[in-house]
Amino acid sequence: MEEIPTPSKEQPHHPLDDLIRTDRIPHIWCPGCGIGTVFSACLAALKASGINLQKTVMVSGIGCSGRAAGYVKLDSFHTTHGRAIPFATGLKLANPELNIVVFSGDGDLFAIGGNHFIHAARRNMDITVICVNNLNYGMTGGQVAATTPYLAKSTTTPAGNPETPFNLPLMAYACGATYVARWTMLHIRDLTDSITEALCKKGFSFIEALSPCPVNYGRRNKQKPLDMLKLYQEKAIIKNDADPATLDIDFEKGIILGKFIDLDRPTFIENYDKIYRPSRLQENVPELNS
């Protein structure tokens, strides 16, 4: 008689398990939330990039997306609200060998932390910033953010948002980022490819990943959990190299996705070494003894 193998009692392994603190699962993200998908795209990109993961650090701020640092099995820092970028700046300057990924949300990076984003991009600090943009403050229950669309409802704009949201890629470009892309969490392969590219690229890289928050944003804006994904599918216009000034998010007209900026200029550390620490530059090594 043919022997039927007993099914293993162990959970099947996920191909990204080696990059996850499985002892911290289950995670806190709600059903229908897109952060987990952006997070796995980031982990897949970390693997695909071939960078030395022992020398790779994830830094987060506060908020739903900020919890990513607590799940990744790398050196990871969950800092204060809005301060992931300046913390990452100190880490990078103390040890330029480190590859640094800042993974955080739109509220954290662009409202409370907006000033740090502007200046890290201006300095061309060599870090990769991934912003999960869910259009609101999810963790505190759905308040208006610097990214909430005009007229959208939130707990602090109950009759509609009177403010204009940021165009994040335009802001990144204007401040000096050398790599700027935007995808949605539905465009998982493009998103993963972009993160991979950004990880391998020298300089300040910025990727905006649109992601649904059905529990707090969708619920108040008459969107069922799948509605936002349908919008991502139907309203996406992939247009690489699009003019950053045209990238305002307008769900009526369509959301432009793609890689918009990919250029090279010296990083802060390169310029600092040139001016202040010439002994660190290879061609100047003999001068060490002078």
């Binding site: 830094v59 820092f77 800092t79 204060t80 809005g82 301060r83 970028i85 300046p86 913390f87 990452a88 700046t89 100190g90 880490l91 990078k92 300057l93 103390a94 040890n95 480190l98 000033n115 740090h116 502007i118 200046h119 802060f268 600092y272 202040y276 620490r277 002994s279 660190r280």
Partner: peptide
């Protein structure tokens, strides 16, 4: 062979100091 940075505000300055400490300096 150290590093100086003038940050954008004192909040960022203090955050960078903590980051640098975990960077080993």
């Amino acid at each position: 062979d150290g590093c100086f940075i003038q940050m954008e505000d004192e909040i960022g300055a203090m955050a960078s100091v903590l980051g640098a400490s975990w960077g080993g300096m």
